[in-house]
C-alpha cells in the first residue's frame, strides 16, 4: 500500500461521521476516490424491505466526492460541498455493502466539479449516481507573498 493511501486511511479514521457510518477508504489518488460502507441495520430506511436509507448513501457519496477533490493534483488545502444532486436508480440490495466511486473531473481556481456512482455487489447496475460542485481552497503557492 502506498504511503499516501495509508495516510489518507488514517485521516478517514479521524472523521467522526464517516467513522460512525463505518466507511472504509479503498482507493484514493489523482482526483479519484473509492469508499465502501458496509450494510448496517441501523442505517435502514424502510424496515419492511431492509433497504438502506437514502441519507446514508448520500453521506457516503458526499464523502467519496470530497475525497476525490482532496486527491486531485490541484492540491486542495480544504474543500466543502457546494451542491450535490443524487439520482436513486434502485434500492441497494439489503445485506450488501455499498461502494461509492467519485471522480473530480474538472477544477477551476476555486471550484471543483465531481461525478460519483454508488454500487452494491452488482456493479453493472448502479444504485445511485450524482454530480456536484465543491469549494476548492488551495495551498498558498511556494514562495507566494501572503
Amino acid at each position: 500500500m502506498s504511503d499516501r493511501l495509508t495516510e489518507a486511511r488514517a485521516f478517514m479514521q479521524t472523521l467522526p461521521h464517516a467513522q460512525s457510518l463505518g466507511m472504509e477508504l479503498i482507493e484514493m489518488g489523482e482526483g479519484m476516490a473509492t469508499i465502501r460502507m458496509p450494510y448496517d441495520p441501523r442505517l435502514i430506511g424502510d424496515p419492511a424491505t431492509g433497504v438502506l436509507h437514502g441519507g446514508a448513501i448520500s453521506a457516503l457519496m458526499d464523502t467519496a466526492s470530497g475525497a476525490s477533490v482532496m486527491s486531485h493534483p490541484a492540491a486542495a488545502a480544504a474543500t466543502a460541498t457546494l451542491d450535490l444532486r443524487i439520482d436513486y436508480m434502485r434500492p441497494a440490495t439489503p445485506g450488501e455493502a455499498v461502494t461509492a466511486r467519485a471522480v473530480c473531473h474538472h477544477v477551476t481556481r476555486t471550484v471543483a466539479f465531481i461525478r460519483v456512482t454508488a454500487t452494491d455487489a452488482d456493479e453493472s447496475r448502479p444504485v445511485a449516481m450524482g454530480t456536484g460542485t465543491f469549494t476548492l481552497e488551495r495551498l498558498p503557492a511556494a514562495g507566494a507573498q501572503p
Binding site: 467522526p16 461521521h17 470530497g66 466543502a80 460541498t81
Partner: peptide
C-alpha cells in the same frame, strides 16, 4: 460529536446534513 465531518474545522458532515 459523531455528526462532525472533519474535526479540524469542526463543522457538521455534509452527509449528516443531507440525511437530515
Amino acid at each position: 460529536p459523531s455528526l462532525i465531518g472533519n474535526p479540524a474545522i469542526p463543522a457538521l458532515h455534509g452527509g449528516a446534513t443531507a440525511a437530515f
